[in-house]
């Protein structure tokens, strides 16, 4: 019995030591990694995927509003055209174009190509640049066609 008590005390001592920073070696943390393009690309692919997951329900809501009639549809479109709605759509467009380019990048990876570190860094940056440029283009078109008129 005394042995068991001693073991328990040992265990709790270890546990409290683990919680004290600096007293035990810790495994590498996210914070000690240098950010590099391929890592950013990987994280962005997931985050934009989750964002688009939520965005798909905005699309489902749009279809629902359309099937519900003129008034619900017009209210829904007004919501999407409000400053907050446009901000959400801007984020979704950015997420979509990034996920699009990043997805193609991953399909190329799956084919066993583009895995050379320098090239992978370059395509990661290219995907980000593409997402920003394509989003700017889409919103430029939206501005010209009058889709953003409600805002101003």
């Amino acid at each position: 019995m005394p042995q068991v008590t001693a073991d328990l005390q040992g265990a709790s001592r270890d546990a409290s030591a683990a919680r004290t920073p600096g007293s035990r070696p810790l495994s590498p943390h996210v914070q000690v990694w240098r950010w590099h393009p391929t890592m950013v690309a990987s994280i962005l692919s997931r985050i934009t995927g989750v964002g688009l997951y939520l965005g798909a329900f905005i699309a489902a809501g749009w279809a629902w509003a359309l099937a519900s009639g003129r008034e619900p549809y017009e209210r829904y479109m007004e919501l999407l055209g409000s400053p907050l709605g446009v901000l959400v759509l801007l984020g979704l467009t950015l997420a979509y174009f990034y996920h699009f380019a990043g997805g193609i990048r991953h399909l190329v990876f799956d084919a066993g190509r583009g895995l050379n570190p320098k090239l992978a860094d370059m395509t990661a940056l290219a995907a980000i640049v593409f997402a920003v440029a394509a989003t700017a283009m889409v919103f430029g078109v939206a501005f010209v066609t009058g889709a953003l008129d409600g805002l101003i």
């Binding site: 489902a60 629902w64 359309l66 099937a67």
Partner: peptide, 24 residues
Amino acid sequence: AASLLGAALALISILKVALGGAPN
């Protein structure tokens, strides 16, 4: 379940309007 529900809602709504069931 969420994906299935979202998909069903979206698809049925689209079909309803597409097949002429949109209320005026």
